[in-house]
Amino acid sequence: MEGFYTEAKPHFENVLTYDGLVIMAYQAIADAYYKEQDYSNALQFYRYAEDRDGYSETFWELRNAVLQRYLGSALGVLFGGWIVMGVFTRLERRHGWLEPLRRLAHNARQIRLVDDLVFLFRFIRQPADSFYYIKQNLRGSLLFALLLYAWVVLVRIVSLYVTGFVFNPYASSWQIYVEMEIVNTVLPIVLWNAANYLVATISDGEGRLRHVIIGSAYSLFPYALFALPIALISNLLTRNEVFIYTFSTQLVLVWCGIMLVIMVKEIHNYSASETLKNILTTLFTMAMFLLTGYILYVLFNQLYEFILAIIQEVSLRG
């Protein structure tokens, strides 16, 4: 882009003196700062202008400067750390310095919730087996499942706030309507659990409600574990690395989906075709629930209006 950015800057600043709400002026001033290589000011003004591309470009420049400056020493520190760790591990194995900690960890697993938490990590490698444990009431608890759901909701909300400006669907945090986000997260979870259990009971599913709730909770572990780190890392990324962000977020969601499929199959002891049928029926039931809710809402609203109108008319003319 060629243009008299710097020459235009004072004029746009003058515009802002008369009206500080002209987004275009912020954009133009940000462009000027960018051309002047005053990146920190440019970043601020791109933020005002809600220009994600400009913000991303500027951030790339700023990050580049930091990398240029510290990359060498950072790599040195990493390498040094790696050597120190290696030496430490070897010595530790010989002297057993961390033995008390290990014992403590072992004892902690006697507490149910801690055990439930440790169980979460087992799903990464052995999902099918792990669901079997749940079904046999060997591991996992309802309390932990509920905590996990709460955690998922919390992660959802917090990640909206901490996702970097470049990738955040909301340009500014005041636009986040927290109550709505909570409903949007909790409602599908509740509907899924209810619908899946109901559908399973009439289609030879073996799982009980408790198993469905715990199983579904554990199925969401990829989201529970990775959504927040991804949101935090997004602060360091620019549009150039958009692939990393979108791929990882999609990966987490797909993973959750696969986990749910496995969950249905194992908990209810279905064949592959039965699993597919069950899931489709579950989704249809969820839709029906919503539709019914909406219809009831409309009907009761009408009734309310009707009664209100009668009362008003009577009070006015009576």
Binding site: T17, Y18, D19, G20, L21, Y48, S172, W174
Partner: peptide, 14 residues
């Protein structure tokens, strides 16, 4: 002024 663009005082535009 831009600091308060997202508040209800945004009617104060300069």
């Amino acid at each position: 002024t831009a600091n308060m663009l997202n508040t209800r005082s945004a009617w104060i535009y300069t």
